[in-house]
């Protein structure tokens, strides 16, 4: 496996002033024994509410934070021990930070990457040209970074992370604050990168559309614990989500009774809304309603992923 995370923990010691010269020591368990593996070429979404431990995980995977416990390997390397060696093989984008040189033109940062990663000249030129084309950076290379818009800067940062052909790209909220068009460009680029080049991608985001459009696998972390790891579709079952069957009857009737197969959540004249588990087929339910009630029309509404995740977060918080 390309990335191996086995029972990894990160505990922060937080000291807080509670009075004059008095300090309280508290431990924050930011990541609490999580395990997962990522194969080469996978594109995995990593989501969770604020403070769940996503950024902490990514920092440990880059080697800039040392885990408090557990075992971690990226390409067979222990990141915190051999940070510099690993650095040549990974690319990192922290959406809220920048690797670019603030006061200097964008191209200067790229020239620096060229030297820093010792990228062969032809590779550098090829990669730069490709990024410039796909991320539409052409007119921006001579512009000082501080004059770039957020979306332009983010695209500039993504290019900077890829010039040295990293095998894996960690993205921590790469679409934060971007408009619809910029988001679409970034997603399109990432899909290309993963599809054509086979770059492994680990993507953290609060925008579920990023995940829906890019990742077949998603990991959900909450309070430092992994609460889901699997296909995006499976989230519905794991989250206990429901689909809605909307039926139009011939006339106004009392709520439909079909036992435990479904429950009526709303009645409006001849139209009724029935909720049933998302993992179950609608066919049986439809047949039963059609046999027992004067059915005119029907439709099925798929659950909304946002609602599923929101419910998942909320459940964990109250549990």
């Amino acid at each position: 496996m390309f990335i191996e995370v086995d029972g990894v923990e990160k505990v922060f010691d937080v000291r807080r002033k509670t009075g004059f010269l008095k300090r309280e020591r508290r431990q924050v368990r930011a990541v609490d024994s999580i395990s997962f593996t990522v194969a080469r070429g996978e594109m995995v979404g990593y989501i969770g509410p604020n403070g769940a431990g996503k950024s902490t995980t990514i920092k440990m995977l880059t080697g800039i934070l040392t885990p408090s416990g557990g075992r971690l390997r990226v390409a067979g390397i222990d990141p915190s021990r051999e940070r510099t060696r690993l650095a040549h093989r990974i690319g990192v984008v922290f959406g809220q930070r920048t690797t670019l040189w603030w006061d200097l033109p964008l191209i200067d940062s790229y020239r620096l990457m060229h030297r820093m990663y010792r990228i062969p000249d032809d590779r550098y030129r090829e990669n730069l040209d490709r990024c410039v084309e796909l991320l539409e950076l052409g007119g921006l290379l001579e512009v000082p970074v501080r004059q770039l818009s957020l979306g332009q800067r983010m695209r500039g940062d993504i290019a900077a992370a890829l010039l040295h052909d990293p095998e894996v790209l960690y993205l921590d909220e790469p679409t934060i604050g971007l408009d619809v068009i910029s988001k679409a460009k970034v997603r399109e680029f990432l899909r290309e990168l993963n599809g054509e080049r086979g770059t492994t991608v680990l993507l953290t985001t609060h925008d579920l559309q990023d995940i829906e459009q890019l990742c077949s696998r998603v990991m959900v972390i909450d309070h430092g614990r992994m609460v889901y790891d699997g296909a995006l579709a499976g989230l519905h079952e794991a989250g206990g989500s429901e689909r809605i069957l909307v039926v139009d009857l011939e006339r106004e009737l009392p709520p439909i009774e079909v036992g435990s197969a479904a429950r009526v959540v709303k009645v409006e004249g001849p139209r009724q809304w029935l909720a049933f588990p998302a993992g179950e087929s609608a066919a049986g339910l439809v047949a039963r309603v059609a046999a027992e009630y004067p059915l005119v029309d029907l439709s099925v509404r798929e659950p909304d992923i946002e609602a599923v995740i929101a419910r998942m977060y909320a459940e964990k918080a109250t549990a």
């Binding site: 800039i64 990192v92 930070r97 690797t99 820093m116």
Partner: peptide
């Protein structure tokens, strides 16, 4: 600000 993170994961 934590921006140092960026400097630390570079091979420099």
């Amino acid at each position: 600000t934590g921006e140092i993170a960026v400097d630390l994961y570079r091979p420099a």
